[in-house]
Structures are given as structure tokens and as C-alpha cells.
Design a protein around this nucleic acid. Structure first.
Lengths: 406, 406
DNA sequence: TTTTTAAATATATTAAAATAACTTTCATAA
DNA sequence: TTATGAAAGTTATTTTAATATATTTAAAAA
């Protein structure tokens, strides 16, 4: 990247124009050279030269054939070559490691999932990543290219050094994943925090293009968020931006969070909390449904099980979700009033249960959002449980589109 | 500005390099052509040509003389021409309108303050702005140039249309200030929300350069904030970003905010609240000092008076500030944990009382900030009660440095 | 005084895009 | 059926702004 006081030269000028043309072709999918000229302001000869370069050297564009004439020579249509160009995305979670091979339009070619088996240690996890990559590489055709590997890690990643500074999920601190993977992978790879990647996926490959202000909330066993503001994915001064789980939503609460503070959203509204409230209700014998579904075994009570009970109409479980939604709404209120996003996406395990949570939040949001912010849309994350994988893919796709990869 | 799919051409290339050189000269203040070459990567001939252009045409750079030789021809030093280039900054507040004439290094040449007199209406306010500008223009020398006028408005400004969509302070909605001022001013002028401008001033003209993540909290009769994240001043989807005053810090509070919600930071910790708590204590006869300072007249009790009492050691007033600091700290905790800023600046009337508030916040912050965010610095706004004016100047200076003004 | 070194400038060259002229191809209409 | 014109794309030339190289200027070191 060009630094603050770096010159602009003719090479960068050319690169900029090449990027403009590539992005236009990807955006329009099918387009003629003369249409590119109109949209970009570049002249036809320049476009011919650059498009040919993209076809012959970068192999990111292909000729499609003739388009319809409108009273003259019919246009030669070119197309973004999404097939035969692939990316590997990896979601490195505490319970599963998931890998996927996708084309540049995010169509899944192949997918693999293996248990993480944390107890076997860091070395074993590296091994599993390498094995997944090797397997996925076999699933591509002979003339097809894999541009790189994106990895979403459940932990704090320093984007400068590549060091995983800390990961409560894995129990890691100061792990140099880059160094280890460098030895074992011969493809370009990049990684970042998994929730941040969910936001990147939403930014680059979400349902709406050109959204510049939104937040992705990831609710699993913990609660985190990825924030996009003015089109930028926020990292913050030390890379900690997005710690949505540790804003206080009930200062008088006696539930202590892992972080030591009281009343954190994560302590009050995470998957863990749903399960523990469920267990409490089971022990107090307040729900027949929970008893039935778990067979009375409290170890079998999970957030998912409580959600199922609620969906089946269990009043106690519904009350739990009502409470959770109330807390989440307070948190969303804070984020909405502070950042004025266009959309708040909710992802992670909790968002998969058919709209129960969204219905509750929709009912409650009036209480916590400024009148002027009520228009904010609260939606499930576009890519569901593949959100991190897609985000990891977006990390690579972004570099391809910026011509940073060969 | 260049749009997403717009070409880059050789004119823009040249403009970019001109900007690089201008910014380098301003940043270094005094620098030789060959040093510019080293820092920018541009070659000496190019630099000579562009620097001469900046000296002769733009008049933003001047020759200073010879520097020290280090064994060869001594360098010809050039300098950013801050004197004889001026900007007018205007702080349009509900009680006062303040105008200042400053040079491009933010040195004050002249300053004017007039009461706003809201009751005389919009037309009268426009008149006052025009009069301030006319007066300030007379205070510049004959060969000196005023580049433009920046205006900070206490209200929500739509930066696309220039419409002031709403301003509780002025009781305005959908006011087209641009249209009115266009008729009366023959200098380029731009305006934005005053708190956002405080943040812009901190970004472009603050004590630290190159801070990319920070927040400015403006505590006056209301509470607002300006957020800079990844080097960008946040506006949000509808331009509402920064409504820090309306995050809930005490959901159980029975103090209702003007916005209709309960427990808003603005309702609990603004200048208004400090005064109203002071009045309450006076009426309950709990403070001799407040009684003495106000002569028993509750209409004379202001936030400033309570602050003075606290500084003189009045226990009741200290308790008020303690409570206020507690609420503010909760709010700062939310912002710090969510955005991971490097610094949180506090400005507005409340920040002027000699560090009392900062001492209290420093003591309390452990309770509300994640361990990893405790390093965040909480400081008074660099430019004190001139923060909005300086921000308004920064708005223009920014355009000058981007060569958007002639 | 001569040589060396650094800074600035003058002149020639280069890279990339713009311009202009030209070819190809088809729709339309005489 | 065949001119005609318009749109798409190509080729050749020009323009622009930067770079490379050579030259001039000026002071420090030999």
C-alpha cells in the first residue's frame, strides 16, 4: 500500500485503472468494452489493452461472445471468470474446523468439517488445517487455480504481525500461526478474527452492495461484533474494536462475567447463559418440556435445546428468550445510537432458530433506540453458519480484486 | 472526488503528487527540495516544478533561504506559508456565536463573540454571521488571503444536502443555511455538526498527529460525541453517528430524557443535570457553600457554580461530581470496549474545571473498562472552548490541503 | 587552488492514456 | 438488394507528467 507521503507514479495509475476495469467487470458480470468506457471514463484503446491483459495474464476475465447490436457492430462481451478461479476459506472454531472451496462468486464447490479436539494441542490443529487444505486442493479441476487461503480465527489477531495475541476459546496467547503455517502451506494465506471476518463477508459478499455502515453481532458461547463504519472494517487502536460482549447492560446484575466485570452483555445473553438459565429452570422443576427434551439430564441442556423448547411453545423457555432479547436489545440500542448503522446483522448459533429472537427484538426495540434510529434493520447474518468461512473467502477475494495476489 | 468506478488519469496523478508535496512541506514546516525527494520518492526535477507551482500560483509555500551545507551545495529551504493565508472559523451555538480569524497553523489573529439571541429568529442569526465575517475580513492585511469559512452548528447537518435537519438547541428543523448564506457571503463556506467538528479539529490539528482511533465527548447542556475510527470521521447511515448522550447508563433510573427514554447519559450527566442536582441540594439545604455562592437564589445555580463549590471543597457538590463522573465512566466504558480508541477527549464547558472530573474518572475507570482497554487515555479536548472554532477551521484547512479550494 | 560532494536545474527519454483516424459489422431505409 | 450510418473496436500518433541523465551551482575538504 501507498503510504501517507508516498508519491503516485504512472505504474500505480495503471494499476488503479486496471482495478477499476476488473471491479466493473465483476460488478456487472457481463459487459462490453464500450460499456466499460462509458462507466469508467477510460477510452476504448486503453480498455482493449487492459482487458486483454486481464484475459491473457491474470486470467480473471474471459471472452463470452457477441452481444446484441443496437445499430452497429455488435459488442464483444467479456465476463468475470469466476469458475476455474477458486479460494479456500477456513473457519477455525473451538469445536469444529470447517474448510470450504468456493469460486470467486462464493459458490461452494466442496466443504469439509472436522472436530477441533482442542486437547490435542496447537500442533495438531495446524496439522488439521494443512490436511483440510490438501483435501480441498484435490477437489479442483486440472486447469483451475486456487488463489489463496483465508482463515477466520476465534481470537484476537494482531493484523500487523499476524500474532494471535489471545484467544479465550483456544486458551492461546501470543501464538504465531503465520510462522507455523508458512512452513506447511505453499499457497498465500491470511487470517483475521472470525467475527471481524463475518463483517467483511457481509461488506464484500453480503446481500446488499454498498452498505457502508453496519454491525455484525456474533452470538455463540460468547458475544462479539464486527463493525463497518464509513465502509471501513474497524480494528481499533490495539485491534480490540468490537468487544460488544463487554458493554454493561445491567450494572446492578450479580452475574459476573469472565472478564471480571458485572452485567456484561456476554454474561447475560450468550449461548452459555441461555443454557445455564435452562438448567436453572430444570432444577427448579419449572418446565415439563425441558425435562422431557433433556430426559432430566442437565448436562444435555444447551442453548439449542432451550430454543427448541421455546419454539414448541414452552412458556418457561420463552421467558428465557424474552429476557435474553431484552438484554440484546439494550446492547443493540447502544450500538445503534452511537454508530447509526443502516443494518444490524445477528449471526452465530443463536440466530439460526427461525426468527424467534428477531420477533422479540423487533417488539422491544422501541424502548432502547432513538426515534431517529428506529429505521435500522435487524436481520440474520446473510451467510448463516457459513458466515465466517465466507468472510475468510472475502479476505482473499478482496486481495484478488486489488490485484495484490498473482 | 473520484467515484468507485471512475478512472484515474494523469491529471489526478499530478494532483496527488502535488498534494503529497504540499502535505510534506506543511508537516515538516521547513524542508529542502532534496529532502522532499527522499521522503516522497519523487525525483528532484518533478519537485522543483511542483514546488514552484505551489509558490507562484497557489501561494501556499514560500522560499525561506539557504540551509546548512553538509559538504556540498547548501539546500534551498522552502516553508509552508501559514501567515498571509487565513481561514475564518465560526462556532454557532445557542447562547453565543463566536468567530475567529486564524492563520493556517491555527494561530488566532482575531476573535469576535456576540450573543445568539435565539428569540430574534433565523434571519437575525444569518445576519450576525455575515456581520462577524465582514468584521473579521477587515482585520487581515492587504496582501493576505482568506481561503474560506468553516462553521460548526449545534445540530444535525446532512452533509450531502447542507440541510440542517434538526437542531434541538435552536429549535430548527429542515433549515437550508447554505441557501441563505450563499446569497450573503462571497467566500467559500462549509459547515457541519459542532461536536463532529471538534473531532475533526482533534484529528487534523490536535496535539498528536496520526491518531486514527479516538472519540471526542462534548459535555455542555447536552452530551454528544464525535468519533474517529481508522482515521475516518464517522457520520453514520443518516448522519446521526455519535449520539453518545442517548446510550443508557442506568436502565432503572426514573429520570426521563428529552428523547423520551429513561437513563440516558445526557439526562444523568450533562451540565443541565449538574445544575438541577445543585438546585435540589440547595432546596434541601444540604450545602452552605452553594447557598453562599448563589445567595440562596436557585436561578443562579449553574454547572459552573457547582464546579466552583466542589473545587472549594464543598462536600455536597463533590458528591454531585462524583455521581456525574460515575455515569460518564460507564459511558466511556461502553465506547472504549466497543471501539478500542487510543484516546477519549472530553470537551465542552464541563471539561474546563481544572481536572476535577478527570481525577474522578481516572479513579473509577477500572470498574467499567476491560483490562485490555485500560490503557486508553482520557484527556481534555486540546483546544478547550475553542474546539469547535478550530474544528471549523480544520474543515477548511482540509480542503486547502487537498487542493479543493483556490 | 583544486577536488569532491550535494543541491538544484535543464534537457532528453519513457510510460501510459488520450486523440484521431480507420476498420469491422450490423440495423435501417432507400 | 444495396447504400448509409452508427456503434464497437483497433491502429497510429500525440500529449502529459514523470524519470533518467547531464549540467550547473555552491560550499566543504584536500
Amino acid at each position: 500500500m501507498r503510504k501517507e507521503y508516498d508519491k503516485m507514479d504512472i505504474g500505480l495509475l495503471h494499476l488503479e485503472n486496471k482495478k477499476v476495469i476488473l471491479k466493473l467487470i465483476k460488478h456487472e458480470n457481463e459487459i462490453s468494452r464500450s460499456a466499460i468506457a462509458k462507466k469508467s471514463g477510460l477510452t476504448p484503446p486503453t480498455i482493449t489493452r487492459i482487458v486483454n491483459d486481464l484475459i491473457l495474464n491474470d486470467k480473471l476475465v474471459e471472452r463470452l461472445g457477441l452481444g446484441d447490436s443496437s445499430g452497429g457492430r455488435p459488442p464483444l462481451i467479456v465476463k468475470f471468470k469466476n469458475t476455474s478461479n477458486h479460494v479456500i476459506g477456513i473457519d477455525l472454531g473451538a469445536t469444529y474446523i470447517r474448510g470450504c472451496l468456493v469460486d470467486l462468486n462464493a459458490n461452494f464447490i466442496s466443504e469439509i468439517q472436522v472436530p477441533t479436539e482442542l486437547e490435542k494441542g496447537f500442533e495438531s490443529i495446524v496439522e488439521k488445517i494443512v490436511a483440510i487444505v490438501a483435501k480441498l486442493r484435490k477437489r479442483k479441476g486440472p486447469d483451475e487455480k486456487i488463489w489463496g487461503i483465508g482463515i477466520g480465527v476465534a481470537g484476537l489477531v494482531n493484523s500487523e504481525t499476524g500474532i494471535i495475541e489471545s484467544s479465550p476459546d483456544f486458551g492461546w496467547s501470543n501464538i504465531d500461526l503465520r510462522k507455523e503455517l508458512d512452513k506447511r502451506l505453499d499457497l498465500p494465506f491470511f487470517y483475521d478474527n472470525s467475527t471481524r471476518l463475518m463483517a467483511l463477508g457481509e461488506l464484500k459478499m453480503g446481500i446488499r452492495e454498498n452498505q457502508k455502515n453496519f454491525v455484525v453481532i456474533n452470538i455463540g458461547y460468547g458475544i462479539a461484533s464486527g463493525i463497518v463504519a464509513e465502509g471501513n472494517l474497524l480494528k481499533g487502536y490495539n485491534g480490540f474494536a468490537g468487544e460488544f460482549g463487554h458493554i454493561s447492560v445491567d450494572p446492578d446484575s450479580d452475574v459476573q462475567c469472565k472478564c471480571g466485570m458485572y452485567g456484561c452483555l456476554e454474561a447475560l445473553a450468550s449461548g452459555h447463559r441461555i443454557a445455564s438459565l435452562g438448567i436453572q429452570e430444570l432444577e427448579n422443576n419449572r418446565s415439563e418440556m425441558l425435562k422431557e427434551l433433556s430426559g432430566g439430564n442437565k448436562d444435555l441442556i444447551t442453548a439449542e435445546l432451550v430454543a427448541n423448547a421455546a419454539l414448541k411453545g414452552d412458556k418457561t423457555s420463552l421467558e428465557i428468550f424474552d429476557k435474553i432479547a431484552e438484554y440484546l436489545c439494550k446492547g443493540i440500542g447502544v450500538i445503534a445510537n452511537l454508530l447509526n448503522p443502516e443494518t444490524v446483522y445477528i449471526g452465530g448459533g443463536i440466530s439460526l432458530n427461525e426468527g424467534l429472537l428477531f420477533k422479540l427484538i423487533e417488539e422491544k426495540k422501541k424502548k432502547y433506540l432513538l426515534q431517529s434510529n428506529l429505521k435500522v434493520q435487524i436481520l440474520p447474518a446473510t451467510h448463516g453458519d457459513q458466515a465466517t468461512s465466507i468472510g475468510a473467502v472475502a479476505l482473499i477475494l478482496n486481495k484478488i480484486m486489488n490485484l495484490e495476489l498473482r
